[in-house]
Computed example of a mutant assay.
Amino acid sequence: MRIIEGAGQWSDSGNDWVEQLKVPDLSVGTYCIPAGGVDTQSPHTEDEIYVVTQGRARIVTPDGAAEIGPGAVIFVPAGEEHRFVDVTEDLALLVVFGPAYGSRASGLA
């Protein structure tokens, strides 16, 4: 067992991804975007789950858009374009990648 300290907690260092745990089959980290900030991420080679722990925004994918806030859980399959926009409150996201972030052969940015 391991307690993952700081996972999903807001950090005021601007757009920031911090990986708190990495094992071969998954990784866990926190992604923060300040209110009014711009999400600059690119599609990932791994499946991904976001859990909103703080803040409000919209997520936009090719399939549509949705308002998100604390407690929202979002699945994004590997390779899917996605972006958080209209960040109206500092956004903190607990992020789980499967397999671990960056572990698949890169065919995506």
Rank of each mutant, 00 (worst) to 15 (best):
M1W: 00
R2N: 00
I3W: 11
I4M: 05
E5S: 08
G6P: 01
A7R: 12
A7M: 08
G8V: 01
Q9A: 02
Q9W: 04
Q9Y: 04
S11P: 04
D12R: 15
S13G: 06
G14C: 11
D16T: 14
W17Q: 06
V18E: 06
V18W: 09
L21D: 00
L21W: 05
L21P: 02
K22S: 15
V23D: 00
V23P: 00
V23I: 10
P24F: 13
D25F: 12
D25I: 09
D25P: 01
S27L: 13
S27P: 06
V28Q: 02
V28Y: 06
G29L: 12
T30L: 06
C32H: 13
C32G: 09
C32N: 14
I33G: 06
P34T: 09
A35R: 15
G36V: 14
G37S: 13
G37F: 14
V38T: 14
T40P: 01
T40F: 12
T40L: 12
T40H: 10
E46P: 02
E46M: 05
E46K: 00
E46R: 07
D47W: 10
D47K: 09
E48I: 04
I49E: 09
I49M: 15
I49G: 01
V51M: 14
V52W: 10
V52R: 09
V52L: 10
G55F: 11
G55D: 01
R56L: 10
R56C: 15
A57L: 15
A57I: 15
V60T: 05
V60F: 11
T61G: 13
T61E: 11
D63K: 15
G64C: 10
A65N: 09
A66K: 11
A66N: 05
A66F: 05
E67S: 01
I68S: 06
G69M: 04
G69H: 05
G69Q: 03
G71L: 02
G71P: 00
G71E: 05
A72C: 07
A72S: 10
A72H: 09
V73M: 12
V73L: 09
V73P: 04
I74Q: 13
I74W: 13
I74F: 11
I74G: 09
F75I: 02
V76S: 04
V76E: 01
V76D: 03
V76G: 07
P77Y: 11
P77E: 05
G79R: 14
G79D: 10
E80W: 10
E80L: 11
E81A: 08
F84Y: 09
F84T: 05
D86L: 08
V87H: 03
T88N: 07
E89G: 01
E89H: 03
L91T: 01
L91N: 02
L91D: 07
A92S: 01
L93Q: 00
L94F: 06
L94G: 03
V95L: 01
V96Y: 00
V96S: 04
P99S: 06
P99R: 06
A100T: 09
S103A: 02
R104L: 03
R104E: 08
R104Q: 12
A105T: 12
S106Y: 14
G107P: 05
A109Q: 04
